[in-house]
């Protein structure tokens, strides 16, 4: 194979430039290998089994299905990811991007600031804010439900998962909005004009022109927000701590609780590996969608 002289001359600097990537890859592989290794042991954070642990084969993986916790959390995570990311952030972000496109109004500025604010606020601040908003004396009860003659409703006691889903839609919509706004700008005006001249209604223009052209953007967006939301921790942990009961105990909180409150690092690692596999499957699915249809 003939090498380009430029590449040959730059081999030294290029090797150095590769170092950060190599370190990142090594760290990822090493930490994953570590977690996989631990998931076959009964090692614990403290106590006798932190020193004298042993291999227990697939026991931890069997317990994922025979012990309470994992299946419930899997379901909660699925509901949370589906409604807050795939349906919520993605659809709301897309709708906002389409409707606000080309407008230069005060309304657009207000909406953009509101959407970005959610994204920019630290998770913990957002959690305390939503806790206050949904409390019995909070904004929703005082300004919406009470004037309508309803309530006060203890929203987190009765609708914890819904509150968490709505909070996350509010928190994460900005990303989808920005991504779709940029993508829409890449569709040339001529194509949309042509569609209009041909008599396409606005709805048809979205369905038959814009959506197919944004196919890869949509897949990329879904890939990213699914991965983020699937392992999301801070907002839910600070807002409800996984409760009441286990109503909002997503997999990441179950993993944290198992590993660091109960102290079963081995079992916690098995949960982590299961999460990795699940996200991996979803990622492969989305990556296939990224390919142009033949």
């Amino acid at each position: 194979m003939r090498q380009s002289p430029w590449l040959a001359a730059a081999r030294g600097p290029m090797l150095i430039a590769m170092l950060p990537a190599a370190v990142c890859i090594l760290a990822t592989v090493a930490l994953s290998a570590w977690a996989i290794f631990y998931s076959f042991t009964n090692v614990e954070l403290t106590g006798a089994r932190s020193i004298n642990w042993s291999f227990i084969g697939f026991d931890n993986y069997v317990r994922l299905f025979t012990r309470e916790g994992f299946l419930n959390s899997l379901w909660v995570t699925f509901v949370f990811t589906f409604f807050s990311a795939i349906v919520g952030q993605s659809v709301v972000g897309f709708t906002l991007a389409v409707t606000l496109r080309g407008t230069r109004s005060l309304l657009r500025n207000i909406v953009e600031v509101a959407v970005m604010l959610g994204w920019l606020l630290p998770d913990i601040v957002a959690a305390f804010m939503w806790n206050a908003t949904t409390s019995k004396t909070g904004l929703i009860n005082s300004f919406i439900l009470n004037p309508l003659g309803v309530g006060p409703v203890d929203l987190i006691s009765n609708y914890a998962l819904t509150v968490v889903v709505v909070a996350n839609i509010w928190k994460g919509t900005a990303w989808s909005y920005l991504l779709f706004s940029a993508a829409l700008d890449s569709i040339s005006r001529e194509i949309l004009e042509a569609a209009r001249v041909d008599g396409a209604t606005p709805f048809q223009r979205i369905r038959l022109v814009i959506l197919p052209m944004l196919r890869s953007h949509i897949a990329t967006n879904l890939l990213l927000i699914t991965i983020w939301t699937f392992g999301y921790f801070a907002l839910i942990f600070a807002l409800t701590g996984g409760g009441p009961g286990r109503q909002t105990e997503v997999l990441s909180i179950l993993m944290f609780h198992t590993s660091f409150n109960v102290g079963k690092l081995g079992f916690g690692s098995a949960i982590a590996i299961a999460m990795m596999l699940l996200v991996g499957v979803l990622a492969v699915f989305y990556l296939r969608q990224l390919k142009e249809p033949k």
Binding site: E44, T46, G47, E68, G243, P244, G245, R246, N261, G263
Partner: peptide, 26 residues
Amino acid sequence: VPGYAKVSALVQDMTAGILDGKSIDD
């Protein structure tokens, strides 16, 4: 005694189960 911290965490899980509406048997 060593082990109490784990038992305590499991006790907390029991009460969480009750809040979730699970039966005492479960």
